[in-house]
Amino acid sequence: MDYNFHWRPVFKTLPDLLESAILTVEVAVLSMVLGILFGLALSLIRIHMTGPLKWFAVSWIELARNTPALLQLFFFGFGLGAFGIHFSPFLIVLMGLTFNNSGYLAENFRGGFNAIPDTQIRASLSLGMNSFQTYTRIIIPQVLRIVYHPMTNQMVWAVLMSSLGMLVGFRELSGETQFFASKTYRIFEYFAATAVIYYVLVKIILGAAKLMALRLFKY
């Protein structure tokens, strides 16, 4: 073993790495929020509707679940670029992650909706709620509780997937790491530091999710 580890450049640029980690969290959280909204819509369409709208929802879900996330990112990056539609790297990653998250979350939500008995809907309708109120006040809160654990997993996935941003030129944690690594040639050191940052990030997210669960599901 005749390799000398040089950690100094890593420590010198650590603030930059941590700053880009915030960007990673930002894009992951945004894609999760959008993914939950789209996922709810997709699963409701898939359950209740027929015709072209259902066909659209099913193909979105199956495409998102059965092709690699990286391919989806490339599609939003290079694919739409062929039509002359160019997005910033941030938007490419955000759209790719949202597309992917929505597909996976929609399947989770479908399981959640199926787990809620029909009598809940009938009971709230008979109390005089309209169907919008029934869903937003009775059904969806219960579904969110059922799928809370898969949702935290998906959040972790979103953070891990955002690392693909480095391949479409997005300077989040991985992209920034690659930038510094190729600048200084300390590839191993930089990526080792980034691995540690990702690990800590994931632990923080899981811890926060646990705390939130304590607060949200007191009853």
């Binding site: 972790v156 997937m161 693909l164 991985s174 590839i187 980034t194 990702y198 690990y199």
Partner: peptide
């Protein structure tokens, strides 16, 4: 907890 892409680069180097 570490992205696969980071693991790949890390191990390859």
């Amino acid at each position: 907890s570490v992205p696969l892409i980071i693991q790949l680069v890390l191990f390859f180097n």
